[in-house]
Amino acid sequence: DAEELIELVERALKEGREIILLGVRITSEEAGKWFIEWIRRFL
């Protein structure tokens, strides 16, 4: 579910982890915020 995915992304970014989803590397909080917004819009 989308909320679970958002929580995972937020937690990983807070822990300083690198996330790779759909071939996109997300390493900064700014990118994470963009990704979370995208999830909310399309899922």
Rank of each mutant, 00 (worst) to 15 (best):
V24T: 03
A12C: 03
E29G: 10
S28C: 09
D1A: 14
E10T: 11
E7L: 12
I6D: 01
E3S: 11
V24K: 02
I39A: 01
E18D: 06
L13E: 03
E10L: 13
L5K: 00
K14A: 13
L43F: 15
L21T: 01
D1P: 13
G16L: 06
G23A: 07
E30W: 08
R40F: 09
L13Y: 06
E15V: 05
E7S: 14
A31K: 13
I6P: 01
E7R: 15
R25S: 13
R25G: 08
E18I: 10
I39H: 01
I6E: 03
R11D: 07
E30Q: 13
W34V: 10
V9R: 00
G16I: 09
D1H: 15
G16M: 09
L5Q: 01
L13S: 02
E37W: 08
I19K: 01
E10Q: 13
A2G: 06
I36H: 02
L13W: 10
L13I: 13
W34L: 13
L5D: 00
E10S: 06
L5A: 02
R40T: 09
S28I: 06
G23M: 10
V24G: 02
E15F: 07
T27E: 12
I20D: 02
E30V: 09
F42S: 05
W34A: 15
F42R: 06
E18M: 07
L43R: 02
V9G: 00
E37R: 04
K14N: 06
E29R: 10
K14D: 07
R17F: 04
K33A: 11
L8I: 12
E29A: 12
R11S: 10
L5F: 09
G32V: 07
R17M: 11
L43M: 13
L5E: 00
A12L: 07
F42Y: 12
E7C: 12
D1Y: 15
R41A: 12
I19S: 00
L43T: 06
L8V: 04
L22H: 03
D1N: 15
A2Q: 08
L8H: 03
I26P: 06
E4N: 12
R40S: 08
E30I: 07
I26W: 04
L43N: 05
V24R: 01
R25T: 12
F35A: 03
R17C: 11
V24A: 03
R25I: 10
I26G: 01
G16D: 02
R40N: 05
L22R: 03
I19F: 05
L8F: 10
V24E: 02
I20F: 05
F42T: 09
E4Y: 15
A12H: 04
W38P: 00
D1I: 15
L8M: 12
E15G: 03
G23F: 09
I20Q: 04
E4G: 13
F35Y: 04
E3Q: 14
G23V: 11
R40L: 12
E30H: 10
L22G: 03
I39R: 00
E4A: 14
L8D: 01
G32A: 13
S28T: 12
V24N: 03
G16Q: 06
R41V: 15
I26L: 04
V24P: 00
T27F: 14
L21E: 01
R11V: 08
E29W: 14
W38L: 07
I20E: 11
I20W: 06
E7Y: 11
F42E: 05
L13K: 00
G16C: 11
I20K: 01
L43G: 04
E10V: 11
K14T: 07
W38Y: 06
K14M: 10
R40Q: 10
K33M: 09
E29F: 11
G23W: 14
L8Q: 09
L43C: 14
I19E: 00
I20V: 10
A2W: 15
T27M: 09
I26A: 03
I36M: 05
I20A: 02
E10F: 10
S28Y: 06
E29C: 04
I6M: 07
D1K: 15
A12V: 05
F42G: 07
L13A: 02
E18G: 04
E18R: 07
W38M: 06
R41L: 14
E10G: 05
A12I: 06
V24S: 00
E37Y: 09
R11P: 02
E29H: 10
W38H: 03
L13N: 01
T27H: 13
E30A: 14
W34Y: 10
I39Q: 01
L21K: 00
V9S: 00
S28K: 01
I19R: 00
G16T: 03
L5S: 01
G23L: 12
